[in-house]
Design a protein around this nucleic acid. Sequence first.
DNA 1: AAAATAAATGCACTTCCGTTGCATGGGCAT
DNA 2: ATGCCCATGCAACGGAAGTGCATTTATTTT
Lengths: 138, 138
Amino acid sequence: MITSDELLEKKGVRPTAMRLLVYKYLAKSHVALTLTDIENAFAKADRTTLFRTLKIFEKKGVVHQIDDGTGIKKYALCEPDCNCELEQDLHLHFHCARCNETVCLTEHKIPHINLPEGFVVEDANVVLKGLCDKCSEK
Amino acid sequence: MITSDELLEKKGVRPTAMRLLVYKYLAKSHVALTLTDIENAFAKADRTTLFRTLKIFEKKGVVHQIDDGTGIKKYALCEPDCNCELEQDLHLHFHCARCNETVCLTEHKIPHINLPEGFVVEDANVVLKGLCDKCSEK
DNA sequence: AAAATAAATGCACTTCCGTTGCATGGGCAT
DNA sequence: ATGCCCATGCAACGGAAGTGCATTTATTTT
Ligand SMILES: [Mn+2]
Ligand SMILES: [Mn+2]
Ligand SMILES: [Zn+2]
Ligand SMILES: [Zn+2]
């Protein structure tokens, strides 16, 4: 089992104390997190540092950014061996209108879609919205 | 052929001079527009008025809002007889990374996707990204 | 037609999030 | 130990969305 420390190293991210904390916090969360979520989790940390931590995580493929339509960016860890590639790694996301939580549906990859001549698809964002499993049973 | 005036009436929107201008501007655009786009098109108009115009247009089903991942909301006219319903009216959008334009792919409806037990899907946002037909041929 | 009512508009201001500039500090290599 | 690079912290900025309130314009009532 690879440690968080080793994983960051492998991805080319220097494993500072703060970065490890953020990584572990993301790892144990089952929902996508906003910068503010993370900021609230570590009252001592500076917002800018966290912002830049997420930015380098994203650049190095540690996390992927999620745009769930709320207008606020969220982040979740990438799967092992993820390259954030279409039809390979990119998956659906689900945003619950009631609890406002967004989850990765990593089992559901983005299906191939044929577009008119001339359109070159390189990336995709698919967000389903409604009630999550927890909220629908009430 | 129904006039813009009549169409707004039919949708329950009072057809003021400004609203008609905005409607017609949206109608002749082949790409989705931001509030700022519209503001720039009518230098005399107040931003708030345009903001509220788009808001009522959206509420009454004249336009639909598009979240293309740029973080800026865009708007495009709904098709005739559109109810903004999943698998019926909701369609894909394409955002070009080069020219930053976003277009409606109204022919491409959002396909049905089976989710795990408990998830109730009511809405969806699908944005494909890459190079548009104009930008890819250069 | 005048008065009363309702709706739309314009201006100022606020809030929220993302982002950048710059000074400081801490760890690593030489 | 010295110098260097990178991470961090503080402050400030910018864009876009949204709100409050006064004013104008349109519609209804008398
Ligand atoms: Mn995800
Ligand atoms: Mn559209
Ligand atoms: Zn929920
Ligand atoms: Zn383009």
